[in-house]
Amino acid sequence: MDSPKRPINAHKAYHAHVYFDANTLDTAKHLYEKTQNTFSLKLGRIHERPVGPHTMWSYQVLFFDTDFDGFIPWLDEHRETLDVLVHASTGDDLADHTLYAYWLGNAVELDLRGF
Score class of each variant (00 low, 15 high):
Ile46Val: 15
Thr55Gln: 13
Leu43Arg: 07
His30Arg: 13
Phe64Glu: 15
Met1Val: 08
Thr81Leu: 07
Thr98Phe: 04
His30Gly: 02
His30Met: 02
Val86Asn: 04
Trp57Glu: 10
His54Cys: 06
Ala88His: 06
Asn106Met: 10
Pro50Ile: 03
Leu104Ile: 15
Met1Pro: 10
Glu109Asn: 12
Ala13Arg: 15
Asp65Ser: 13
Arg45Thr: 03
Val86Ala: 05
Thr66Asn: 14
Met1Tyr: 11
Asp21Ala: 11
Tyr100Asp: 12
Pro7His: 07
His78Cys: 14
Ala101Cys: 13
Pro7Glu: 05
Tyr14Asp: 08
Thr81His: 13
Val84Asn: 09
Leu62Gly: 03
Gly105Asn: 06
Ala95Arg: 03
Thr27Gly: 00
Phe63Val: 04
Asp69Leu: 06
Pro7Cys: 04
Leu99His: 02
Phe20Val: 02
Asp67Thr: 11
Val18Lys: 05
Asp111Lys: 02
Ser3Val: 10
Phe63Thr: 02
Arg113Val: 10
Asp21Ile: 05
Gly44Pro: 12
Met56Gln: 13
Tyr59Met: 01
Trp57Val: 07
Asp67Arg: 07
Asn9Ile: 09
Trp103Gln: 05
His47Asp: 14
Gly44Phe: 08
Asp76Val: 10
Lys5Glu: 08
Phe115His: 10
Ser3Met: 12
Phe115Val: 06
Pro73Asn: 15
Asp96Thr: 03
Arg6Pro: 02
Trp103Phe: 14
Gly105Ser: 05
Gly105Gln: 04
Ala88Cys: 09
Glu80Gly: 06
Ile46Lys: 01
Leu112Ile: 11
Ala88Glu: 01
Ile72Asn: 12
Asp69Pro: 00
His78Ile: 09
Thr35Leu: 15
Phe39Arg: 05
Asn23Ser: 14
Arg45Asp: 04
Asp26Met: 10
His87Gln: 14
Leu112Val: 06
Leu31Arg: 04
Thr27Pro: 03
Phe115Cys: 09
Phe63Trp: 03
Glu33Asp: 11
His47Cys: 09
Phe115Met: 07
Leu104Tyr: 08
Asp65Ile: 01
Asp92Lys: 01
Lys34Asp: 12
Tyr100Lys: 05
Val86Gly: 10
His78Gly: 11
Pro73Tyr: 15
Gly105Trp: 00
Phe68Gln: 06
Ala88Asn: 07
Asp83Pro: 04
Glu77Gln: 14
Asp26Lys: 13
Val18Cys: 05
Gly91Val: 00
Arg79Gln: 12
Gly44Lys: 07
His17Tyr: 06
His87Pro: 03
Lys12Cys: 04
Ala107Pro: 01
Ser89Asp: 13
Gly44Gln: 06
Trp103Gly: 11
Val51Thr: 00
Ala22Pro: 02
His78Met: 10
Leu110Asp: 03
Val108Asp: 04
Leu41Glu: 13
Leu110Trp: 05
Asp67Cys: 13
Phe39Gln: 07
His17Leu: 09
Ala13Ser: 15
Ala10Tyr: 06
Pro73Trp: 14
His87Cys: 09
Asp21Arg: 11
Phe68Ala: 02
Tyr100Pro: 00
Leu25Val: 12
Tyr102Ile: 08
Glu33Arg: 09
